[in-house]
Amino acid sequence: MTKSAQKIPELICPAGTPASLRTAIDAGADAIYCGFIGPTNARNFPGLNFTIKQMEQSLNYARERGAKLLCAINSFATSPNIDIWKKAIDDAVFLGVDAIIIADIGMAKYVSEKYPNMRIHLSVQAGASSVEAINFYIDRFNIKRVVLPRILTISEIKKIHAAISCEIEAFIFGNIGMMAEGRCSLTNYVSGKSTNMDGVCSPAEFVRYEEDENHNLISRLGEYMIDCIECGQSAGYPTICKGRYNVKHRNGYYAFEEPISLNLTYLLPDLIKAGVSALKIEGRQRSKSYIREVVSSFRKAVDAYARGEQPNIDNLLALTEGHKQTEGAFKSKIWR
């Protein structure tokens, strides 16, 4: 593969259910990522994810339409229950998925030893954010693609691309966590459920909304107040890194980030030039209609860029959380 050849990147889309998988493929996804029911993937939410049977049927659906299926087994296998993760990997290999997305080094070892021909994508949850880390994973586990953490600027991504031999996948749209992936136990501190081990972030069973006497909407995670929104305004889902807090010299400010979504539509050409070969949309927890709208919009956007045209993305703005969007770490170091 020559580094100078700019290929049109694959569009990688989320599916939390077989129905959204079909929707995403019909809307133009090149590949779908999804996971099994249970703690083995990083979106272990009630009502989401696939049984083995559903995974098999979905794989057939994808195959018939020329799309790929990437199986996310990207939480951290936790002793003494490691067999749950091993079984998920065995099942994925047995079904013949196109790649397994892995974060845990123990599971990377398991796949690369037991199934040396299986294609491994290094999950964003592995937090491999440097040339050195990525090359280590290539060297030891023969990973074919790295999903980059959302903490890098495009110029840093470009340097990484020049120095590694695997493909790069980058997030372009959807929820943006403020903490480095695979390295956050804030949810566990408050709820007893771990992002790394249980695959959850701000689990719904710990979320509460209350209205106070002034009709302000209070959102809580566990016992902790995450935000308090004046009446009439819409409250975001309470994640710790999007809450408002007090410190000694400042009250009621978004200490980490506002409720905001990642939208890199305007940076797509730069990302492609930097060497990103797969563009990823976040949102396995999202509805079918959201998936349809976002995937088809990005399909059009990517195809328009491929033809050298400027796409219209106004409809994407309406879908972002609280109608606020950011280019996050990608655009410049000022974000940091």
Binding site: F76, S79, D104, I105, K109, G127, A128, S130, E132, N196
Partner: peptide, 30 residues
């Protein structure tokens, strides 16, 4: 961070709390 392992090579070393080691296979690898 895993990046440190690339510099350390084959030398004896320690794994710190910021590198994830949640299971015996990861431990075996390290």
């Amino acid at each position: 961070d895993i990046a440190a392992l690339a510099h350390i090579g084959k030398r004896e070393h320690y794994i710190g709390a910021y590198i994830n080691c949640y299971n015996e296979m990861a431990l075996e690898f390290f």
